[in-house]
Design a protein around this nucleic acid. Structure first.
Lengths: 233, 233
DNA sequence: CTAATAGTGTCTTTGAGACAGTATACT
DNA sequence: AGTATACTGTCTCAAAGACACTATTAG
């Protein structure tokens, strides 16, 4: 037996299942929402869970995450994708040892997506982060969600990533509501606008919104490319 | 065949090799150092590389990282351990598909460690981060090191983690040198001390250092437990 | 004119950063 | 005396945060 075959023989028994799990956030009805799917198979049939699946030999972790997401949502084109953390406790998954690489995805126009059943799920739905159903894989998935929320909070403070949760045009009030729902606290309108405008994050567009009350100036993001600042809001 | 066996059969072919790679930092001779090992086996025999190894079925990722480190350094008791990132491009490792979970470890009293050969390495040595030898796994390991340095930089700015790189007692000048070597820039002595002291990060101890020149007050960290601040230095 | 939302400016306080001279120990 | 290092305080400027009224639209 040559060295390589020997190596393979030895290492084969060390191979582990690797899953990519996705926390997909969106901002709808003034609330931060997260995408959950209803599991089709054991363990936890019929329960809600974070979408995810096993990473295949011929795809990268990112490709795997996006593939899973696509299966659930039809598509998520040019959405923001960020690796969160890799969970690898020995007893996480009742099926055996699974390494779970968690990703966060920000969806900017969730209304346009057609949520649908997939190979692994009978249903997919947006839930308000403050009103989640019981989760399959109980504490493990809850931990991932908690971690994702923290990361999102931090990222809003220090980067322009908020725009990845908004459509092409938005009002400053909408932007503020997004911050408020992620921070879970009220912000001062004048200070908020002062800060956003002073950072040159947005440009006014030649349109106004058509809601109740006085129409609001619409803006677009100067860039959706991620930029890190020392502090935003 | 029952469902579970079927599941196993299906998922077995999806199993992947998972490695834990460790970037171990220390602060010696006024410089930030990183631990590298000389590889005993292919690929890259005789070249320097980041220590690491495959994660086994019955150990968590952290346990695996610490085990590898222990094999190289004899021991690393109560050192700071933080997961950095998981690298999973398809073509990373010449041996085939490997998922690499990178960890950062901070060693506080490196002089006390006895570096030694291990099962996987013929040698282990500290290198100044600004003067690294050619690395096995070339760009992949260099990328991990770069990432680790950035993370360490960020962490020094926003937390008290610096103390995990220092011994029980240290002078403020030593602490400043540590910051300077990680930031790669000179800091103002008065502003630095003002900031550190105002944050109540350290307590003076009843000793002075015995170097050349005027003896310096020694301090110890009020706590080594990680605390995140809005900004340190 | 009422309800609903958009938009705007000032003051205070805090912290960052620039900056240079004195003190202590050893030889 | 000379050298090497420790230690200390003030001023300026920018940004954070507290705070309340006017403007525009639809009904």
């Amino acid at each position: 037996m040559d060295n390589y075959s020997k190596f393979k023989e030895i290492t084969n028994k060390w191979k582990l299942l690797v899953a990519a799990d996705i926390v997909a956030f969106s901002f709808q009805e003034r609330q931060l929402k997260v995408l959950l799917v209803k599991r089709k198979y054991e363990p936890g049939v019929g329960q809600w869970a974070i979408p995810g699946g096993f990473v295949r030999e011929d795809e990268s972790l990112e490709e795997s995450a996006l593939r899973e997401l696509k299966e659930e949502t039809g598509l998520a084109k040019d959405c923001y994708l960020e690796q969160l953390y890799t969970f690898g406790e020995v007893t996480r998954d009742p099926r055996g040892r699974v390494i779970s690489v968690a990703y966060m995805v920000l969806i900017n126009e969730p209304e346009k997506l057609k949520l649908k059943a997939s190979d692994d799920a009978t249903d997919a739905q947006w839930f308000s982060v403050d009103d989640l159903p019981p989760l399959s894989f109980g504490s493990a998935h809850r931990k991932i969600l908690e971690y994702a929320r923290q990361r999102l909070h931090w990222k809003l403070e220090y980067s322009n990533v908020a725009f990845s949760l908004l459509g092409a045009h938005f009002t400053l009030t909408e932007l503020q509501r997004l911050y408020e729902s992620v921070y879970n606290e009220k912000l001062d309108k004048r200070n908020f606008r002062k800060k956003i405008l002073s950072l040159d994050l947005v440009d006014p567009v030649d349109k106004v919104s058509s809601e109740l009350g006085r129409p609001a100036q619409l803006y677009n993001a100067r860039t959706k490319k991620l930029k890190i600042y020392t502090r935003i809001v």
